[in-house]
Design a protein around this nucleic acid. Structure first.
Length: 926
DNA sequence: GGGCTCACG
DNA sequence: GACGTACGTGAGCCCG
């Protein structure tokens, strides 16, 4: 570093990271209009720089200046003490993509911009201060960070930009009670709860200063700690000497940070008008652009008429790039780092992530500019089973993944996907953990639940006016369907890159809408953080015992055969028992039973309720019911589940959808593990096949009556709330209130009726529905409902208020702000009835769904020290697989998390309680 | 591929 | 005055 810097020169060192955070928190969220890029912090940062430059015209003006940034949150201090700064709140998502832009801004203002991997901005500031002072120059550090005060003195000063106040040795003494050269000693003793510097327990800045004043410096103090008179201080210092020394290494700034930058490169130069205005215009900061132009005495460039024509940018498949070399991929990775975000999509051979092979990756950084990296395409036209020869012109998969890995794992690069859980699992199978992520499907669900589904085709059509290339056109359909690895590369480029392009455009559209529609918190706390949690659960899977299922299938088949013979004897001829159409004809036409009703297709209804009624008159319907139960158990469960056992893991891996249900509930597919039988004894035994491996235990925790508790809270029903607080049987209490009978020795029938009413209320009760459910006359059911509303008037108010809210706003919401749209609420006819009941139910079901989601998000961290895996979620139940000796702590911790999951966002006025069970299999645990 | 039936919360 | 109704899901089967 050969430099002309020296005597008479004055260096300003600006703490850039502090400026960014100040700008971010001081300003409301601001996004660039054309594409929704968050730019609030960049705007504030530019304003600060502009004011700084304008204020620097006096005699004391700097000759040199640099802005210093933190490179990343990981520094050498984490190697010394892993907990250092560990309790920092997570970076706000809309701040992350702004970091690279603040560097751009600094350079646009023609100011040097410095950061170094592994070091904090403070270390760079320390190093430059020392070097500048040693060269004979003067330094002013522009920051209010107390951690920098150790540098003050001997030609180095500080300026607090907030208060515009100079900080010299006197001010430092005022703050720390010692001279600047002893500040580190005081900080080492006092610790810092914000940065998680431990220090000595029970010793604060005041005490530390007294001790240092008395003993001179930290080492002397520690050596002579035994002389301290106060027993508490003495003990604390003696017992924590190591911790204090570690603290010293944490707070001591490093004056030997490796730096290439010369002082000459920091010489003050006025901004290049053209460059600066170009940047500000690109950021679409109109006011600032004008003010800067005025101050530079040049014409402000006319803002480009970008705003409206961007969404109409056509989809040009010819523009998509086929990336087949390391050079080309490197250029894309550079572009991604310059942007700070990228839309990513993977192409594979299967929708089942656990069995899928990666075929290619597409990337998009800007609308219309996307690429596809083919990796596993095979030569078509081979033998019958397809050739295993890779086609030419593809990068080796390993090389491409190793190039992409740092970017995919980089905390400062946001990876955007449509249904990112799928792609994250594909990458996870390749050993790459993709983080952080954004998901357009989940954004749409937070914004548009109830209006439409959230698949890419729907979103592209609705929001971009574009119909993507149908996958069928590449793969075909039915028996001749091929897998993506056999698609020719040039066709794959168009299809795959288009998906990434669409995803990026949707993200640009949705991101600013989250704020505008007040669902940022929903997205950030209930949707996005669940992606890695569910991905982990799905990849873990649950062990299922094939022999148990197979034995049950055989038993069912035998019983069905016997029943079938009996049924056909009773019917007088053979027919397909599994055909509702044929059964209807047997029952109502041939056997002449009464009460046959035809549905819209002209077939007789033969549902369980119909057959149950007929069973009193004839033997056959009851046998059909028995047969149907067995047929269901066999085909849907004992047979089908065996096909879902993954041959490699021996476990069943379901797939959860975060957007399957409008209320916010999860749904489960391939297989659905949320409807495994439990209500019938015969069905429940299927759960015996879901087992914990040897030495481990299945644990189930489920919320008790959570929806009724939420109803009691939302509708403010004092009697219900009190009953939950007292822990008494809620259905018995309801019956007692309604029918005036004591809870003690209650007729089970009466309790059953009250229970049906309680559930009916949650569903948007009607006399008809209750009558059918309880099999009582409609008038009687209506009487129950009237009495219920009389006893609990808050319920009627809740129903009316919710319906009205839906009519006024077009949506209803949960206690956590999740919105469920109700577009049919103002419709005429039966649709209005459906919409009304759905509107009444959605806030209750949805709030329960939000609560368990919050619990699931917190669970991995809360149970990280336990040998326990979360396997399944069944709406109000979580199932874990736990090492034997971890069962009790797991139950304790998981229960705490579940019962407190609403906090601190919502304080429920009823207690939430969780029941726990354990055993060798799911049947025992439940 | 729509409709019916039935498994779950 | 008639209509048609419990809320939210997914899967397997029949049948056109």
């Amino acid at each position: 570093m050969s430099d002309t810097f020296g005597k008479g020169h004055h260096l300003h060192l600006i703490d850039g990271s502090a400026y960014i955070f100040r700008a971010y928190h001081a300003l409301p969220p601001l996004t660039r209009k054309s594409d929704g890029l968050p730019v609030g912090a960049v705007a504030g940062f530019c304003n600060i720089l502009f004011r700084y430059l304008n204020g620097n015209k006096g005699a004391d003006a700097p000759t040199h200046v640099a802005v210093i940034f933190d490179h990343s949150s990981k520094t050498f201090r984490n190697d010394i003490y892993p907990e250092y700064k560990a309790n920092r709140p997570e970076l706000p998502e809309d701040l992350r993509p702004q970091f690279p832009l603040t560097r751009d801004a600094t350079r646009a203002f023609n100011i040097a911009c410095i950061e170094t991997e592994g070091y904090e901005a403070d270390d760079i500031i320390a190093t430059l201060s020392c070097r500048a002072r040693d060269a004979g120059g003067r330094v002013t550090i522009i920051s209010s960070d107390k951690d920098l005060m150790q540098l003050v003195g001997d030609g180095v000063g500080m300026l607090d930009p907030m208060k515009n106040k100079l900080i010299g040795p006197d001010e430092v003494f005022e703050k720390f009670g010692v001279a600047p050269n002893r500040v580190v000693d005081v900080q080492s003793l006092a610790g810092d709860s914000v940065d998680n510097v431990p220090g000595a327990p029970g010793i604060g800045i005041k005490t530390a200063a007294l001790l240092i004043q008395e003993y001179g410096d930290l080492e002397s103090l520690l050596e002579r700690a035994g002389e301290i008179k106060q027993p508490k201080r003495r003990e604390s210092l003696i017992n924590n000497a190591d911790l204090i020394r570690i603290s010293k290494r944490l707070v001591q700034l490093d004056c030997d940070t490796p730096l290439e930058d010369s002082f000459d490169s920091m010489a003050v130069n006025p901004p290049e008008a053209e460059e600066l205005l170009k940047f500000l215009t690109e950021m679409e900061f109109r006011t600032l652009t004008k003010r800067v132009a005025d101050s530079l005495k040049v014409e402000a460039p006319t803002p480009p008429a970008v705003v409206e024509d961007k969404p109409d940018l056509p989809f040009d498949h010819a523009k998509y790039e086929n990336v087949s070399t390391a050079d080309a991929l490197g250029k894309w990775i550079d572009r991604i780092y310059a942007r700070g975000y990228v839309a990513v999509d993977t192409e594979t051979t299967s929708l089942d992530e656990m069995r899928a092979d990666l075929v290619g990756i597409s990337l998009c950084v800007e609308a219309g500019q996307a690429c596809y990296i083919p990796l596993g395409h095979k030569q078509g036209g081979g033998d019958l089973f397809g050739s295993s020869e890779l086609s030419d012109g593809q990068m080796p998969m390993g090389e491409a993944l190793e190039m992409l890995r740092p970017m995919l794992c980089d905390a400062s690069i946001l990876k955007i996907g449509q249904n990112m859980k799928y792609d994250a699992k594909i990458f996870a199978c390749q050993g790459v953990e993709v983080t952080p992520i954004d998901d357009t499907m989940l954004m749409s669900s937070a914004l548009n639940a109830g209006l439409h589904n959230h698949g890419m085709d729907t979103l592209a059509d609705k929001y971009l006016g574009h119909t993507p290339i149908p996958i069928k056109s590449l793969l075909g359909s039915g028996k001749s369907q091929i897998t993506f690895d056999l698609v020719p590369v040039d066709e794959a480029v168009k299809y795959a890159a288009e998906d990434a392009d669409i995803t990026l455009r949707l993200w640009q559209l949705f991101k600013p809408q989250l704020h505008r529609k007040s669902v940022t918190t929903v997205y950030e706390t209930l949707e996005r953080p669940l992606v890695p949690v569910l991905a982990k659960m799905e990849m873990t899977g649950i062990q299922v015992d094939r022999d148990t299922l197979s034995r049950m299938s055989n038993t069912f088949a035998q019983k069905m055969g016997a029943l079938e013979a009996e049924i056909q004897t009773l019917a007088g001829r053979s027919f397909n028992v599994g055909s509702p159409k044929q059964l209807g004809e047997i029952l109502f036409d041939e056997m002449g039973l009464q009460g046959g009703k035809k549905g819209k297709t002209g077939a007789y209804a033969t549902g369980a309720d119909v057959l149950e009624d007929l069973a009193t008159e004839h033997e056959l319907p009851g046998k059909v019911l028995d047969w149907r139960q067995l047929a269901k158990l066999k085909s849907t469960y004992t047979d089908a589940l065996q096909d879902h056992i993954n041959p490699e893991t021996g476990r069943v891996h379901t797939s959860y959808s975060l957007v399957g249900a409008v209320t916010g509930r999860l749904s489960s597919t391939d297989p659905n593990l949320q409807n495994i039988p439990v209500r019938s004894e015969e069905g429940r035994r299927i759960r015996e096949a879901f087992v914990a491996p040897k030495g481990r235990v299945m644990v189930s925790l489920d919320y008790s009556q959570i929806e009724l508790r939420i109803l009691a809270h939302i509708a403010e029903i004092p009697a219900l709330k009190q009953a939950f607080k007292d822990g008494i049987d809620i259905h018995a209490m309801t019956a007692s209130e309604m029918f005036g009978v004591p809870v003690e020795g209650m007729d089970p029938m009466v309790r059953r009726q009250a229970k049906a009413i309680n559930f009916g209320v949650i569903y948007g009760i009607s006399g008809f529905g209750l009558a059918r459910n309880l099999r009582i006359p409609r008038g009687e059911a209506q009487g129950f409902i009237d009495r219920y509303f009389e006893r609990f008037p808050g319920i009627r108010e809740y129903m009316d208020a919710t319906t009205q809210f839906a009519k006024d706003n077009g949506y209803v919401q949960t206690l956590f702000g999740r919105r469920i749209h109700t577009p049919e609420i103002n419709a005429k006819g039966p649709a209005a009835g459906f919409a009304k009941r759905a509107a009444i139910n959605a806030p209750i079901q949805g709030t329960a769904a939000d609560i368990i989601r919050r619990a699931m998000v917190r669970m991995p961290d809360a149970t990280r020290d336990l040998d326990a895996k979360m396997l399944l979620q069944v709406h109000d139940e979580l199932i874990f697989e736990v090492a034997e000796d971890a069962v009790d702590p797991l139950i304790k911790i998981a229960r705490e998390i579940m019962e407190g999951a609403a906090l601190p966002a919502v304080h429920l006025s009823v207690p939430i309680t969780v029941d726990a069970g354990q055993g060798a299999n799911w049947a025992e645990a439940h």
